[in-house]
Design a binder for these strands. Sequence first.
DNA 1: GAGATGACGGGCT
DNA 2: AAGCCCGCCATCT
Length: 111
Amino acid sequence: MADQPEPLKSAVCRLVPLIPAGCVATYGQIAAYAGSPRAARQVGMVLAGLPETTLIPWQRVINAKGAISPRGKPGAVEIQRILLEEEGVKFLSDGSIDLRQYLWQPESIPQ
DNA sequence: GAGATGACGGGCT
DNA sequence: AAGCCCGCCATCT
């Protein structure tokens, strides 16, 4: 029987916690592993909807340019940078992250 | 229902 | 190299 496609929100909540501390993943990467390679923006929407008390490491998700995505909420970008630095992620002088060094490269995705 | 918006990505200038 | 533009697609007005 054909199983329902897992809702994106559920997939995000399952996949993002798999990103190890000290690594980052891109929105597009999460979307692709979630089975919706064109849903990068929706991944951002799911993260935006998380409560501030969430245990999900949302800060490890950045954009494909290796930068923290700007957003409406003031200060949120700064917070994300601090959280990542606390996990050992180094930022370049232009405020971006070297994806060659920090991008999450999973060998397999457990169900 | 149509148009605007957004935590994106990739291509072109 | 940096910016601009366009495609994508769920949400919101």
